[in-house]
């Protein structure tokens, strides 16, 4: 018996960062750690650390929402060289 059931949270195995063409780069000097980027990210892959916002490039698809919602414009989207 083999139902098509799945284990919780296993999507984490999908490293969706490989989709990305643009990558967010945070200017940590300018970052005010407000968390807007983290809240609005569709992929839950940018985190506020004591040093400022930090994208998790393993999952970041490069949509640019973090850059757009940042109130101090400290996140730049740059074309990724692969």
């Amino acid at each position: 018996m083999k139902p098509a059931n799945g284990k919780p949270g296993t999507s984490m195995e999908n490293k969706t960062g490989s989709w990305r063409t643009q990558m967010p780069v945070v200017d940590k000097e300018k970052c005010i750690k407000c968390g807007q980027c983290a809240m609005n990210c569709p992929d839950g892959c940018i985190f506020v650390t004591p040093n400022g916002a930090q994208p998790n490039y393993e999952y970041c698809k490069g949509c640019g929402i973090c850059s757009q919602v940042c109130p101090v414009k400290c996140i730049k989207m740059v074309t990724e060289e692969k």
Partner: peptide, 16 residues
């Protein structure tokens, strides 16, 4: 918690 009623790609559908 488990996830039920998943969708299956061609690699797995037939097997189910």
């Amino acid at each position: 918690p488990i996830t039920m009623g998943m969708y299956a790609l061609p690699a797995t559908y037939q097997g189910f």
